[in-house]
Design a protein around this nucleic acid. Sequence first.
DNA 1: GATTGATGCAACATGAAATGTTACACATGC
DNA 2: GCATGTGTAACATTTCATGTTGCATCAATC
Lengths: 156, 156
Amino acid sequence: MKRNSRLSLALHTLGHMAGDPDRIRTSADIAEHAGTNPVVVRRVLGKLREAGLLISEKGHAGGWRLARGPEQITLADVYLALDERLVAGGAEEEDAPSCSIEHALQRKVASVLEEVERGLIERLAVTTIAEVREANDMAHSPERVAPLISKPSRPL
Amino acid sequence: MKRNSRLSLALHTLGHMAGDPDRIRTSADIAEHAGTNPVVVRRVLGKLREAGLLISEKGHAGGWRLARGPEQITLADVYLALDERLVAGGAEEEDAPSCSIEHALQRKVASVLEEVERGLIERLAVTTIAEVREANDMAHSPERVAPLISKPSRPL
DNA sequence: GATTGATGCAACATGAAATGTTACACATGC
DNA sequence: GCATGTGTAACATTTCATGTTGCATCAATC
């Protein structure tokens, strides 16, 4: 895997789950499909569980599944669950710099970045996992609609 | 220094230069004030020179100075000069993923991020170095205005 | 209730990218 | 020609995300 790919992994997994919400998937299966490691999967999906997007079940037939319908999970939910902050990092907080010029500039940039991040979240909030999935299905499937009971051809 | 601080260093330096545009500063002076290394300063300011914001002069009395008035340098100019892309990284390009679901999600996120970055640049473009500097001076200086010939108390 | 197969978590290993450092070629004013 | 700059390459260091291993724990099934 490459850098900063937690959001990618999270969305990817949720996208598949949206196509067959009742199925329970194991970290190992997910990791294999995503080309990464089961522990990494648990770390990322663990965040989504904390945020109430996923449910994990321990024990024998355990694994992961959606905590609610895919039409009730927006991209913003996922973004916020992982506390990635794609838009942060301009000059970052830390103990305020002693130099007042630097301080003023950092405050300015920080306020712009806050605004922009709000904009990002707003835009992510209008799209659900289900919508992206449907758009994808319409573009690829001859039947024009996602089968609820998925075909044998391993949907994950 | 910490991570991703090139923008911070660049703005900090330009902010000081804006207060005394004619003065020529050496990498060593700038580095000392910013708490970093002269070579790092040259690397970062070199980007600003490529973008036409700064001029560097070699040789004996060489050093760095603004290429134009501080009221003609916006925060966006600086942001674009260093090709930082604070808003990038959601799922990044690379060879398109084989999985169509992942592909669809990445395209969606990428398009949102592009929009958001345009927004960021627009917001940065409305503020000049001079403006931030003035706001800072008004808040701190008793004389309410930045002295053009700066006081002995080393302004950089 | 022992086994099996899953999560949860901590500790450590690896890799990559940003920053820091050293060294030296080159330019320029004195 | 010497002092004092930049320009740049090569290397060292630091930092952080990701990858890995190991083990405790839990739950279904035999």
